[in-house]
Simulated scan of single mutants.
Amino acid sequence: MRGVILAGGNGTRLHPLTLVTNKHLLPVYKKPMIYYPIETFRKLGITEILIVTSGEYLGHFYRLLRTGSELGVELHYEIQEGNDGTGAALLCAEEFVKDEDFMVILGDNIVCENIKRFVDDFEDEKKEFKAKILIAKVDDPKKYGVVEFEGKRITKLVEKPDNPFSNYVNTGLWICQPEVFSLLKKLKKSTRNEYETTDVLHTYAKEGKLTYGILNSKWTDAGTFEQLYQATVLMKELEDKAMQRDEVEFEGGKIG
């Protein structure tokens, strides 16, 4: 399985920071934001990774990441012309993916748990389902793509509804079969004047071909100043807990 990170867009909600660089290169605690999806893939054993971004900032990414060897992965890069949405960005990955199943992570998504079980389960599920999304329960669902599910199927998926029908949302981590590209090519622009990958996922949901996994730990996307701050606080909390755990284990070993 290959990995695709979508790291384009203008990041207008993070102006003026994003007037000088891509939002996915902004710091989240001690690391650039883009490190987190790369680490998520590495923990899954997915080391062939494509980063899709705009030509304006391609050099910024390469200066930071190079080939990815220092992070234990092999990075590839593709330029998205214009800002026509996630659907157009994902189409840039078609040649990279070829005929393999692949996982997509929106570059501002930060996951705190190992999601390997979700990826492993899809090997059996893909006989019945065309794609899988990871979902999370949140307090403010109207900011996201809201989902409804029954059994193993997503039955409804609506982007930023005025009246959310559930507290479960699409996190921006998706597992797809390569045939998704044929649907992406048929997309029409949404009311936001963008090609939305959500529209393809909605089609799969209507056909009963979209399954899901529920994240148990905290999840955040860092697309606004508030979310960027929350992501930084979350990463610090996790580091503090890890340090306390290490201290307890060290003291326990010392006493023993």
Rank of each mutant, 00 (worst) to 15 (best):
Glu237Ile: 06
Val4Leu: 08
Thr47Gln: 14
Ala88Asp: 11
Asp101Ser: 06
Asp139Gly: 11
Gly9Glu: 04
Thr171Trp: 00
Glu207Met: 12
Thr40Asp: 03
Tyr168Gly: 00
Ile133Glu: 01
Tyr204Trp: 04
Glu128Asn: 13
Arg153Phe: 00
Leu6Asp: 05
Ala242Arg: 12
Glu148Ile: 00
Pro161Trp: 01
Ala222Cys: 14
Asp99Cys: 04
Arg13Pro: 02
Thr53Pro: 03
Ser69Met: 11
Glu100Leu: 05
Glu249Gly: 00
Asp140Ser: 15
Thr224Val: 02
Arg13Val: 04
Trp219Phe: 15
Leu75Ser: 07
Gly87Ile: 08
Arg2Thr: 06
Ala205Val: 03
Val158Pro: 02
His60Ile: 03
Lys160Ile: 03
Glu113Pro: 10
Glu113Thr: 05
Asp124Lys: 12
Ala88Gln: 09
Thr220Val: 15
Lys188Gly: 01
Val147Thr: 09
Ile154Leu: 04
Ser166Tyr: 02
Lys188Phe: 01
Arg66Tyr: 12
Leu134Asp: 00
Ala131Gly: 03
Gly253Asn: 13
Tyr77Met: 08
Thr67His: 12
Thr155Ala: 02
Pro161Leu: 10
Gln244Trp: 05
Glu95Thr: 11
Glu148Tyr: 00
Thr198Lys: 08
Gly85Pro: 12
Asp246Val: 08
Ser166Gln: 03
Arg2Glu: 03
Phe225Ile: 06
Ala205Ser: 08
Glu249Asp: 10
Lys137Ser: 10
Leu106Ser: 10
Phe181Lys: 02
Val28Tyr: 01
Asp121Asn: 09
Thr155Gln: 04
Ile79Met: 04
Pro161Asp: 13
Thr86Gln: 04
